[in-house]
């Protein structure tokens, strides 16, 4: 049994990487390994908005990550700097920056790159999907 973390930089709207990462996450869990954390960076953070609203016949990546993380108790962390730059914010950051609303999905958190470093140190493998 091994511990994994994933780094996801793929844009959820224009590349396959988020789908690949979800499939990889489901598979490693089904094999009995542990998924510690999924860290979203660059355009990957766009998946953390709870306002993502794809047509009903398309896959909802935000809800899929949220459901998987809740069921299997792993963390979904978006980098705060790149998230804020792309308009992905939680209530605290919205207030700090005098923004009129927040949109972070409740299954996700925003934090710093230290969370990525820690995930690398505390996992047997880090696998990147971009």
């Amino acid at each position: 049994m091994a511990t994994f973390s994933l780094l996801v930089t793929a844009n959820p709207h224009s590349s396959q990487g988020q789908f690949s990462a979800i499939q990889f996450a489901k598979t490693l869990i089904s094999q009995g390994h542990i998924l510690k954390r999924v860290f979203f960076y660059a355009d990957g953070v766009l998946v953390a908005s709870r306002l993502n609203c794809p047509p009903s016949d398309e896959y909802n990546l935000t809800k899929t990550w949220a459901k998987l993380a809740i069921e299997h108790d792993f963390e979904l962390v978006a980098c705060v700097t790149v998230a804020m730059k792309r308009g992905i914010t939680n209530a605290a950051e919205a207030e700090r920056n005098a923004l009129t609303g927040d949109n972070l999905d409740p299954a996700f958190e925003i934090s710093g790159l230290g969370q990525l470093t820690e995930a690398m140190l505390e996992s047997d493998r880090l696998v990147t999907f971009g």
Binding site: F24, Q31, T128, F129
Partner: peptide, 15 residues
Amino acid sequence: FVALTLEYDKTVSWL
């Protein structure tokens, strides 16, 4: 795919 990532010491995604 998962098994391969464990057979090798580390993975590098070439982006």
